[in-house]
């Protein structure tokens, strides 16, 4: 028996390992699981004791109730703003990142430091001047105000992600294009950007998620329900009218999460690579 003792111990270790990983992951997922579970229950089953994970009766009524004009408008607004900000921040971010990565000039490192430092700028402090600026430009209660605001707070990360990518991109392809007589701008647009698709996607997803999340700009820079993005609209419309209908609230919460979860599941690898590559290197 003395031969198999180490093997046994290894097996037991392995089992304990899997058990602890599964337990930890499950604990992390309890909130999401409970949200899903509640969202499929009829309201009267929501208040059961002890709580039931698998509903006795599964209903889609809570979801059907969400298909109303208000939520549709909020979703559309958030979608427009998030896509707009993702495109703007990623494209402008790519230009800047390429410039910092490829131009030899003093101040490139300093510029990066400023961009990263600007992540710590208190957003409410920025908003005070932005508010006055948007009033002057007549941008209050427009998508443009939100897109610009979201672009400003996400562009540092976009630049950082893309600069890491460009730094690691082999120069041979670009150089070959120059030999063929292409201008730098053409090479950037038609050679470099297509190669950078994974990094561009990572940046765009990041900006989209942040924009989808953002509450304060939405509360302050829009004033009518037809312009509000989701977080602001939910705070001002749904939560005001909310009267203990937890199953419907959970269905609402699930529906608000779906767009970003879909993005996440399709682009998970791309996104992870983008986030970790830079972080681990730097």
């Amino acid at each position: 028996m003395s031969v198999s003792a180490p093997i046994l111990r290894r097996r037991a270790n392995q089992a304990a390992l899997y058990l602890s990983v599964c337990t930890l992951v499950l604990i992390m997922l309890i909130p999401i699981g409970w949200m899903l579970s509640t969202s499929f229950k009829p309201l009267r089953d929501v208040f059961q004791t002890p709580p039931q994970w698998i509903p006795d009766e599964i209903t889609f009524k809570n979801y059907v109730a969400q298909f109303n004009e208000v939520l549709g408008t909020l979703m559309l607004n958030s979608m427009i703003v998030a896509v707009g900000a993702a495109v703007l921040a990623t494209f402008v971010g790519a230009m800047t990142a390429y410039g910092i990565s490829r131009f030899r000039f003093k101040g490139g490192a300093l510029l990066m430091l400023f961009f990263m430092g600007s992540l710590a700028f208190p957003v409410p402090l920025l908003m005070i001047s932005l508010y006055s600026l948007f009033v002057k430009l007549g941008l209050l209660n427009t998508y443009a105000a939100l897109i610009l605001g979201h672009t400003a707070v996400t562009i540092p990360v976009s630049i950082w992600l893309l600069k890491n990518f460009f730094d690691q991109l082999p120069r041979e392809v670009e150089e070959a294009a120059y030999v063929d007589g292409a201008s730098p701008l053409k090479v950037f647009l038609f050679v470099v950007l297509p190669m950078a698709r994974p990094a561009l996607a990572a940046s765009a997803i990041f900006v989209f998620v942040v924009s989808w999340n953002e509450l304060l700009f939405g509360l302050t820079f829009t004033s009518t329900t037809d312009m509000r993005p989701l977080p602001a609209g939910i705070t001002l419309v749904f939560l005001q009218e909310f009267e203990g209908a937890w199953s419907e609230m959970m269905a609402l919460a699930v529906m608000v999460s779906i767009p970003v979860l879909i993005l996440f599941f399709f682009f998970q690898k791309t996104f992870l690579r983008g986030v970790t590559a830079g972080a681990v290197k730097g």
């Binding site: 977080p231 609230m249 979860l261």
Partner: peptide, 29 residues
């Protein structure tokens, strides 16, 4: 990793609503 990482994209407004339910004094889980 994917199972845990998805938590990172759950919108804050969703967490605010969800936490109200999880920590509800009478019926919260």
């Amino acid at each position: 990793r994917a199972a845990v990482f998805q938590v990172w994209v759950v919108p804050w407004i969703v967490i605010a609503i969800l936490w109200g339910w999880l920590f509800n004094d009478e019926w919260g889980i």
